[in-house]
Design a protein around this nucleic acid. Structure first.
Lengths: 252, 252
DNA sequence: CTCCTGCCTGCCGTTACGTGAGAGTCAACT
DNA sequence: AGTTGACTCTCACGTAACGGCAGGCAGGAG
C-alpha cells in the first residue's frame, strides 16, 4: 500500500509542508518516489510518522526524535514504556496546575493575598534557597502590594456587594447551627454545605462535589484558609470540612 | 517594591532575554526605568508576568496573550475560570493519550495489529467520512502490512519465548480453574488475576490496580481483545474481567 | 581606583514550520 | 486530443519565540 503526501497528511492530521520538512531533515523520508518525482509513503513510513508525532506531542525537538527512533539498540516495548512515563509526568504537572488554579480561584474569592512566590510556585522553580529570610527581605508584605493585589482581584461593585451579602447570610446560618449543637452531618448542616457549593458555582466556577471536598481539605491544610473560617467562629473550619464531606458522600 | 530584570527572571524562572523580548513586543514593559536606563519591575508587573506565563504554558501565542490580558472588558475571575476550563480540556486530552498508550502497550503485548486509523486516532483527527468503505479501500488488510507490523512489535527472541511460556502457563491454570467451576471471586482465581498484573508489570510496564481494571474493561469492550481471550477458552474474557475487578477491590 | 557582576542595546542564529511562486503531473470530462 | 482542476514538485523567503554573543556603561566591594 502506497500513499501520496496529501493522503498521508490528511490521515495523520499534519500539513504537506510538514512532511516535506521531515523529508528535508531526514526525519521521515518516503520509502520511494514515482517516476515523476512524487513521494510515495508505505505502511512502515506511516508507523514511523506515528512515532514521530507522538514524541513531538511530548515536546521533543525533531533532532532528538530522529535519534530516539533511529536508535537500533531500543526495542518497541521500551518506546512505549518511555512514552507512558513521560505522559504520566506531564499529566501530574497538569493536575498540579489545575489544583493551583482552583487554589487561586478560592483565594481570590476570599480575598486572600498570594505572595509572589506562590504565584510562581506552580511553575516548579521555587528556589528553596530564597524561600526564607531572603524572600522576606525581597518581597515583604508591603501595603502597596496588598493594595494592588486587592484591586486586581475585585469584582464589579454591585456584584461584589451581593456576593458579600449572600456569603454573610450563609455564614450566619451555619454559625447558628453550629452553636445550636447540630452535628455536622445532620441534614440542615449538609444543606448548608450544598449551598456553599452552589454559591461557588453561581458566582465563581462550576464546583463539583469532588472539587468541593478538595476545597474542604484545603480549608484545614492551609492555615490562611483555616484562619479565614476560624475568624468567623472557632471550630468552623473543621465543622464545615465535615459537613462538606458528609454531604458529598450522601449525594453520591 | 521594585525589582531588576535579573531578580524577576530568577523568581519567575525565565531568562533575562525573555523579559527583554517581552518588553520589545510590548507584552510586558516594566513600569519604569532608573536614571541609568535599567528596567524596574513592580508588583503589578509581576502579576502580569504570572498571567503571561500561565497562558504561555497553555500554548497561547504571545500576541494572543497580549490581547487576552489587555482586554479591558474582562474581569480577573473570568481569567481564572477560563484558565480552569483550558486546563481541564488539556488534562482530558492527556488522559486520553495515556489510555491510548496503555491500549497500544496491551495490543503490542498480545500481538494484535492496529489499523493506521487507530494509530492516529489519538491525535483527534479521525475523519468519520473515511471511516468506512473508503478506509477499507485505502488501508485494507494487506499481508505486507500485517507482516511489517508484527515484526515491528516483537521482542528479542529469548525474552519472547520466556514471556510466551510464562503466559501460556498462566493461561492453562486459569482455564483449569474456570473449568473446575471455581467462582471468579474465589481466592485462587483472584491470585491468578494478581499474577496477570505482575506478569504485565515485570515484562511490559508498571501496572497499577487501576490500570489493570481499565484493561479488564477493555477486554470486554474491544472485540479484538475479547476474541483473544475467547480464543483461549469460551467465557474467559468475562471470567478474567470479574476476577480482576474482585482482586482489585479486595486489595484496596 | 580597580574589579567583578549586572545591565544595556543591537544583531545574527535557530527551530519548525507557513506561505507563496513558478512549473510539471494526473485523472477526468468533454 | 484537449482542457480543466486538483495535486505535486522545488526553491526560497517569512515568522515566532527566544538563545547567545559583542561592545559598552553602572555600581557596590575591597
Amino acid at each position: 500500500m502506497a500513499y501520496t503526501v496529501g493522503q498521508v497528511a490528511k490521515v495523520a492530521g499534519v500539513t504537506v509542508r510538514t512532511l516535506h520538512h521531515y523529508d528535508e531533515i531526514g526525519l521521515l523520508s518516503p520509502s520511494g518516489r514515482t517516476s515523476a518525482g512524487y513521494r510515495r509513503y508505505d505502511d512502515a513510513d506511516l508507523q514511523r510518522l506515528q512515532l514521530v508525532l507522538y514524541y513531538r506531542e511530548l515536546g521533543f525537538p525533531l533532532e532528538e526524535i530522529t535519534a530516539i527512533i533511529d536508535d537500533p539498540a531500543a526495542d518497541p516495548a521500551a518506546h512505549l514504556r518511555r512514552q507512558h512515563e513521560l505522559l504520566t509526568v506531564r499529566l501530574k504537572r497538569l493536575q498540579e496546575m489545575v489544583t493551583a488554579i482552583e487554589f487561586a480561584m478560592e483565594a481570590s474569592k476570599m480575598n486572600i493575598q498570594l505572595t509572589p512566590e506562590e504565584r510562581f510556585e506552580v511553575f516548579g522553580d521555587a528556589d528553596p534557597e530564597q524561600h526564607e529570610a531572603e524572600a522576606e527581605r525581597r518581597w515583604g508584605d508591603t501595603d502597596a502590594y496588598r493594595e494592588s493585589n486587592r484591586r486586581a482581584s475585585r469584582y464589579g461593585k454591585d456584584d461584589w456587594l451581593r456576593i458579600k451579602a449572600e456569603n454573610e447570610d450563609w455564614g450566619r446560618r451555619i454559625v447558628a447551627l453550629m452553636a445550636s449543637g447540630a452535628p455536622a452531618d445532620s441534614p440542615e448542616v449538609m444543606d448548608l454545605a450544598e449551598e456553599h457549593r452552589q454559591i461557588i458555582s453561581r458566582w465563581f466556577y462550576e464546583c463539583s462535589y469532588e472539587m468541593q471536598t478538595g476545597l474542604a481539605d484545603m480549608y484545614l491544610a492551609d492555615e490562611r484558609f483555616t484562619a479565614y473560617y476560624e475568624n468567623i467562629a472557632a471550630g468552623l473550619a473543621a465543622y464545615l470540612h465535615e459537613a462538606i464531606h458528609a454531604n458529598a458522600i450522601s449525594r453520591a
